[in-house]
Write a protein that binds this DNA or RNA. Structure first.
Length: 482
RNA sequence: UGAGGCGUGGUGCAACUUGGAAGCACACUUGCUUUGGGAGCAAGUGGUUGCAGGUUCAAAUCCUGUCGCCUCAACCA
């Protein structure tokens, strides 16, 4: 599948030559998004938004299946509210956009546009929660948030972005921890089964932790340029926010107690993750589970048998449209070859071609986007086989991504080797770390790599830190990250 | 915020060094022929050269300022 082959699209930069350029080319050529005149703001175009809607739908179902309800909280947060929590406000202060005026009237108090909704939601929970019978509170919201970033990239880091943020309150510490991990597992299952994106999950180091959280857990994917992408986070907030916002309940034992909280989120950044996990030289490759079109039907229209072919593909489309997300492109404006390229660029998992030659044999040509395989299927009742093919593509894309990640597994206790790997092939490096932030910092200065996560399963034997040689280590994943 | 690069029809670029009629390709419009990997021919539409000043008889080109975009670094989901 090299692009040098004649006939394929030449408008997308080669991945190896300039990955950043490739990424932007794909986003724009696949019609996912466009720039707006305000820096860092992005227009999500219909094809990109359809992708987001499919992601939303699949995740929303999982969020509800685990007992959560959706709600919607306001966009504005009064300054005094935002400032209540010191760590939190310090973490977000440089990124908050402020509204200072309503119409012509200056406001008494500035209103921050939410960079995240902890302050807004916690202040509300303080009013809602009175008794242990009110717990747990399990709420999620789909919303936009604004973070005034200096450097922005389509989907990966935009000034305004769309996300989902869950905010829960619990009676006990154990229950909150259980919730934190439960949602981390929901994200993991979702990333791997729906997005076909293998992820490493684990705990964040203190320096990478969410501002105000007790513990931050995350899932980390590996992009095709060898850099890691944080794809989702789940925070155990402890009683930090409860104390600040005074979220108390009267327990069974007549004692007034603070609640234990969690928050967790994923954003439109996932779309960037899907692009960089699966994309290739011809553009986007989408897993069938989220592809806006799972199948595109392209009729080969020649003068003589035009009407017969059209009738047949329309019949085929009608048969399939309730089972699959399918598009029939019977537009006369473009040639079949043009359409092949177009839908490959857009990442459509399966292409069906039907032309005069196929009609004679009562068959159609089916081409897979994931591996380029081309096969014929009977025109009559192909639903079962197409369904199987889509399922196989979904599995295969996960497998390919996993193979990419595992291709050169790096594990080292030697810092020089660490540096060499990070310089040459990147990816994740599994190394021992003593737990000191200063070592983390030194490693970052020298290699640009940060601790992406501390995995749950730790080898029992002890060794010494890759930087300072001291003991009491945990094995962690390092990588350069987005 | 530091370093570098770039702003010219919708897109990608040329013309800038050495000031003198804004050009090419693709896209778009119309017509005909085509259609199994970005079709062909013909005729068209579309640009106050990012913006604001300045120098000059004359500025895309020189000067000053400014805004934006891209890459790398620092910061972040």
């Amino acid at each position: 599948m090299k692009k040098d082959d004649k006939g394929y699209v030449q408008e997308i930069q080669d991945q190896e030559d300039d990955f950043s350029r490739w990424y932007i080319d794909v986003v724009r050529k696949a019609d996912l998004a466009d720039y707006f005149i305000v820096k860092g703001c992005m227009i999500i175009k219909p094809y990109g938004y359809a992708l987001w809607e499919n992601i939303q739908q699949a995740l929303d179902r999982r969020i509800k299946e685990t007992g959560h309800q959706n709600a919607y909280f306001p966009l504005f947060c009064p300054e005094s509210l935002l400032q209540k929590e010191a760590d939190h406000v310090e973490g977000f202060a440089p990124e908050v956009a402020w509204v200072t005026q309503g119409g012509e009237e200056p406001l008494e108090e500035r209103l921050g546009i939410r960079p995240t909704s902890e302050a807004i939601i916690c202040s509300t929970y303080a009013k809602w929660i009175r008794s242990y019978r009110d717990l747990p509170v399990l709420i999620n919201q789909w919303a936009n948030v604004v973070r005034w970033e200096k450097v922005t990239r389509l989907f990966l880091r935009t000034t305004e972005f769309l996300w989902q943020e869950g905010h829960t309150a619990h009676r006990t510490e154990e229950e909150a921890q259980e919730e934190t991990l439960k949602m981390l597992n929901v994200y993991t299952e979702f990333a791997e089964n729906v997005l076909a994106m293998p992820v490493l999950k684990g705990l964040k180091s203190d320096s990478e932790k969410f501002a105000g959280a007790q513990k931050t857990y995350c899932i980390e994917g590996l992009m095709k340029d060898g850099k890691a992408l944080q794809a989702g986070t789940s925070h155990n907030l402890g009683q930090h926010f409860a104390r600040v916002f005074d979220i108390k309940y009267l327990d069974e034992d007549q004692q007034e107690k603070y609640v234990w909280q969690t928050s967790w989120g994923v954003s439109t950044r996932l779309i960037g993750g899907v692009i960089m996990t699966h994309g290739d030289e011809r553009g986007l490759r989408l897993p069938p589970s989220i592809a806006p079109y799972q199948i595109v039907i392209i009729p080969i229209l020649v003068k003589k048998q035009r009407e017969e072919v059209l009738a047949k593909v329309r019949e085929l489309y009608d048969k399939m449209k309730d089972t699959f997300r399918v598009k029939l492109d019977d537009n006369d404006k473009f040639t079949p070859g043009w359409k092949f390229n177009e839908y490959e660029m857009k990442g459509v998992p399966l292409r069906i071609e039907v032309g005069p030659r196929d009609l004679q044999k009562d068959q159609m040509m089916v081409v897979r986007r994931d591996n380029g395989e081309k096969n014929s299927l009977p025109l009559a009742n192909p639903e079962k086989q197409l369904g199987d093919l889509l399922e196989d593509i979904q599995q295969n894309m996960f497998k390919q991504a996993l193979e990419f990640r595992e291709k050169n597994p790096s594990r080292t206790e030697n810092f020089e080797e660490f540096q060499k790997v990070m310089e040459e092939k990147r990816g994740f490096i599994y190394s021992p770390w003593c737990g000191k932030a200063s070592c983390e910092e030194h490693i970052k200065d020298r290699t640009k790599a940060t601790i992406r996560c501390i995995p749950f399963d730790q080898p029992s034997h002890d060794t010494s830190c890759i930087w300072c040689d001291e003991g009491d280590t945990r094995w962690v994943y390092f990588a350069r990250a987005y």
